[in-house]
Design a binder for these strands. Structure first.
Length: 625
RNA sequence: GCGUCCGUGGCUCAGUUGGAUAGAGCAUCGGGCUUCGAACCCGAGGGUCGCAGGUUCGAGUCCUGCCGGGCGCACCA
């Protein structure tokens, strides 16, 4: 159990006041039908702040109390009354039954004194200092995400996966899991053969000379050219063009040859594969660095390819897998609309699915994970249902701990993006346009005042914030229509709005410090100095901010449990908005004495809460911008 | 056809897992910088939550059926 002295939660403090009353009022009296944690979860702000600060809905108590919710609300209010009159139910100051709700008015100073010192010390999300931290062993979970193909370009669609996966890694760690962040590169397959065919056969020595940087992107363009040419020939051949049919057949024979040579580790071709593959990997690494994303383990399709085929062979012999039309697969009749799952092609080569079996076993056995999360776009839902079902039938108990987080696609206004068709916006284009825009529209005015490096660094942080927030703020089952101009508009509900609040709040502390107004360290200790400071807080905007800060941890916990970073985005946006209202109405620097200390404490708490929340989304929080 | 997701102000989306009078951003109109930073704040207009039933004290939320749209349906990854 957590040490209650480290429990900063206002809602839990209120719940502790209600808890014994619920036991006493139950019919017959006895144990409270709801735990402190359950009561705290039910407490929510009423629709109208005139009604109170927190409302306790009594519906769930109807059975245990053997009466209707309105009577229950009334009964709890009456039982609480003597203690309220004596001032013995902090932080509750008043309780008013309103229909089925018990509306609670808090002593804001007492409530703030509970929450703010810990919040300002940055402890709201610290393991062991959070409410309801249990003793159970940390689950070991692997999150696999990003998974780009080498020899192809990295575009804005890939960015949604990266942002989502990274945020989940951070959220689950904050929520108490031991997380292994994993990537899985697609470094084998037909796309490689197409790319190398063009690279080797269609380019001269000069054309094969890669540029100094962004070689992965350059390679991706070669792949696109190869793909487009093949698609064109295919179309022309269908229309009866014999020349095109000839060239298509030639090219197909060549890509098959390349594929086979690679499979048999032909020395010359393998060397070229390794070099070109590295160009892509280098480019990805540079992107990950810019995005502040890091992985604990890197998987490659090339390392599970052969093992997957061996597993298919083994389970074919055991009779679990069957031959169908020359290919090998399994019947998962539970998946009624498409029961057959193909695991090996008719020509004996492997598929995406083949490798997924070997990859899963590698994860289970080498990493001893309790839970396995796959972040892959929603089109793969059926694929993963089959993979997990197949693993279960193969006898892997961990199959039940596998989850697919399927997110919707990023599209362009004119329709779906297609890497193959080349109708994509490369991530680098977005990054550069965003960074330039941030610099020229907002940061140029600091030129001379700040160093050039500071301006560049801040521009990158804000650009990253805009991109990541844009990718994360939407629920995963909503598609994102990517419109460059709309993304460059950084006002309203955007990443920079949140970052701006952090910067302005930080600026308030700096400006106050310049005139000798600093937070008294004693105010952070939770004693009398704290009470004196928080007792001075009472404006509506302060009240709103404090109550909102109290829900940071429950929001993070919920976002982690449901694997939905978007809910944290919404919360942080509301927190930032509440701060802006406070900032408009409650000047800090002109304040004096206890009010100054109270507001400095509140501002410090917001800074920490915002910075920590943004960090869980992988978004930097600059001190100035 | 089967499966799956989506449908909420003009546009883009939230909606605390079934709770009180459905909220934001953008856009439009109006107001606020001589005071800690205007990437901001305040106000106004704009909604039968796709349609029809059902479940119950109570439905944007759950169930059924329609309508409209996206995506997936074996030798690509």
């Amino acid at each position: 159990m957590a040490d209650s002295s480290l429990d900063h939660s206002i809602a839990r403090a209120v719940a502790r006041q209600l808890h014994p009353l619920l036991g006493a009022l139950a019919q017959p009296p006895g144990e409270s039908p709801l735990s402190v944690g359950e009561i705290a979860e039910l407490l929510a702000p009423p629709p109208n702040r005139d009604l109170g600060d927190l409302a306790f809905p009594c519906f769930k108590l109807a059975r245990a109390f053997r009466k209707g919710p309105p009577l229950i609300a009334k009964a709890i209010a009456e039982a609480l009354e003597p203690r309220l009159a004596a001032g013995e139910a902090p932080p509750v100051a008043a309780a008013t039954p309103t229909g089925p709700y018990l509306n609670l008015r808090l002593d804001l100073g007492q409530a703030a004194a509970l929450l703010l010192p810990g919040a300002a010390r940055g402890e709201l999300l610290e393991p062991g200092k959070r409410p309801a931290e249990g003793d159970e062993a940390k689950p070991r979970v692997m999150i696999e995400y990003s998974q780009p193909n080498t020899h192809k370009a990295f575009h804005v669609g890939h960015m949604r996966n990266l942002c989502l996966g990274d945020a989940l890694v951070r959220l689950l760690r904050a929520d108490g899991s031991e997380v292994i962040a994993a990537n899985y590169f697609g470094d084998v397959g037909a796309h490689i053969a197409k790319c190398l065919w063009w690279y080797l056969d269609r380019l001269d020595d000069a054309g094969r000379q890669p540029p100094g940087d962004h070689r992965g992107e350059w390679l991706g363009k070669i792949y696109t050219r190869a793909h487009n040419q093949l698609a064109q020939w295919e179309e022309e051949a269908k229309a009866g063009d014999d020349g095109a049919a000839y060239w298509l057949a030639e090219a197909k024979a060549r890509t098959t040859e390349i594929l086979l040579k690679l499979e048999h580790r032909d020395p010359e071709l393998t060397a070229i594969w390794e070099q070109t593959r590295q160009w892509s990997l280098d480019e990805f690494a540079e992107i990950y660095r810019w995005c502040g994303v890091s992985f604990d383990h890197l998987f490659y399709e090339s390392e599970v390819d052969g093992e997957g085929l061996r597993m298919v062979e083994e389970y074919l012999e055991r009779g679990l897998f069957v031959v169908s039309e020359g290919a090998v697969g399994i019947f998962n009749e539970e998946i009624k609309h498409m029961p057959f799952f193909l695991l090996r092609k008719g020509d004996g080569t492997s598929l995406y699915s083949t490798k997924d079996l070997a990859l899963a076993r590698l994860k289970f056995e080498k990493f001893a994970i309790d839970r396995s999360i796959y972040v892959v776009d929603v089109r793969q839902s059926d694929h993963f249902r089959h993979v997990f079902r197949t693993l279960e039938k193969m006898g892997f108990p961990q199959a039940s701990a596998c989850e697919h987080v399927g997110y919707e696609m990023v599209e362009l206004p004119e329709g779906p993006m297609s890497g193959r068709k080349g109708t994509v916006i490369l991530f680098r284009a977005l990054r550069e346009r965003m960074t330039d825009h941030v610099r020229s529209a907002y940061l140029e005015r600091f030129r001379g005042e700040w160093s050039d490096e500071a301006i560049d660094e801040t521009a990158a942080s804000v650009a990253l914030g805009a991109i990541k927030y844009g990718m994360l703020a939407r629920d995963i089952n909503q598609k994102i229509v990517f419109d460059m101009d709309a993304w460059l508009d950084l006002e309203g509900n955007t990443g920079p709005y949140l970052q701006y609040v952090h910067a302005r709040a930080s600026s308030i502390l700096r400006k106050c410090a310049e005139v000798g107004k600093e937070l008294d360290p004693a105010v952070l200790l939770g004693g009398e100095a704290t009470s004196a400071a928080t007792a001075a807080l009472g404006e509506d905007q302060e009240r709103e901010l404090i109550l909102l800060l109290d829900t940071l941890w429950p929001t993070v916990h919920n976002a982690a449990q449901t694997l939905r970073p978007s809910s944290l985005c919404t919360y942080l946006y509301n927190l930032a908005k509440a701060f802006n209202r406070f900032n408009q109405a409650c000047p800090v620097k002109p304040s004096e004495g206890a009010l100054l200390q109270g507001r400095l404490l509140l501002v410090s708490a917001v800074i920490r809460g915002l910075a920590q929340g943004l960090d869980l989304l992988g978004i930097p929080a600059p001190d100035r911008m």
